[in-house]
């Protein structure tokens, strides 16, 4: 029962979405199913918040490895939640007098929420994203080894793209006139050619495989052949 009801719901929702695509009378059913998911996902925010608090409070109380970070997490979570929901430091909205600061925008410029966003959240996000530059360098150093013919081709392509995507591309092959029949050999043009032709072709091939795989997995789920995601059957 515990497995069958969710499975049945998944099957019904899946088939409704398929039917809604082909049969005009059922278009609104498909929209309804999408809205149900949105509602579920919204409620899940509360579930997520509760779980976050529970996990980290437990870590703190157990003094588990890295529990100091859990304290920071809990404080940050509660601070952002209270400041955002409570609209602390927000000015009243002149359009809706009588509602005090509650009618104001929670993230208006100069408010504590705005300050936290600009001074804490934004730099933190940018920092993590910027780490990619370092990891790309170390991964490239390790991975691009001319072990065989395919690896050599990959390596050569990497050189073309790395140089062609900067001013070096123009600078290095500047001696080939733009108007000549050989302009395709200019580094920046080779880069565009590689990206447009080889890369796009490869991407499309992968996407075709992915699309077929998606169809097959979805069908297995709709037919109840694969139930491992629900925790029953082999997986």
């Amino acid at each position: 029962m515990k497995r069958n009801v969710p499975l049945l719901l998944a099957i019904i929702a899946g088939f409704v979405m398929i039917v809604a695509f082909f049969i005009p009378y059922t278009v609104s059913w498909g929209e309804d199913v999408s809205i149900w998911f949105d509602i579920l996902a919204s409620i899940a925010f509360i579930l997520g918040g509760g779980n976050l608090l529970k996990v980290h409070l437990k870590k703190v109380s157990d003094q588990a490895k890295g529990w100091g970070y859990s304290i920071i997490t809990i404080i940050s979570f509660l601070a952002m939640l209270i400041i955002g929901l409570g609209k602390l430091g927000v000015n009243p909205n002149p359009q809706f007098p009588g509602h005090g600061h509650w009618a104001g925008q929670y993230n208006e410029i100069g408010s504590p929420f705005y300050w936290l966003f600009e001074s804490v959240f934004k730099p933190l996000q940018a920092t993590i994203f910027a780490m990619l530059a370092f990891y790309v360098a170390s991964a490239a150093f390790r991975a691009f080894r001319a072990k065989n013919m395919e690896a050599i081709l990959l390596l050569a392509t990497a050189f073309f793209i790395l140089l062609g995507r900067t001013a070096a591309g123009v600078f290095l092959t500047d001696f080939i006139p733009e108007e000549s029949g050989y302009s395709g050999l200019r580094l920046e043009n080779i880069t565009v050619f590689i990206m447009d032709v080889f890369n796009t072709a490869g991407h499309r091939a992968i996407m075709i495989g992915v699309a077929l795989g998606t169809a097959s997995v979805s069908l297995k789920i709709l037919l109840g052949v694969d139930r491992s995601y629900l925790g029953s059957g082999e997986g």
Binding site: V136, A137, A140, F141, F159, L163, T166, A168
Partner: peptide, 10 residues
């Protein structure tokens, strides 16, 4: 400069 460094690293 970062791209040139990547080429040199490779």
């Amino acid at each position: 400069v970062a791209h040139v460094l990547m080429v040199l690293l490779i």
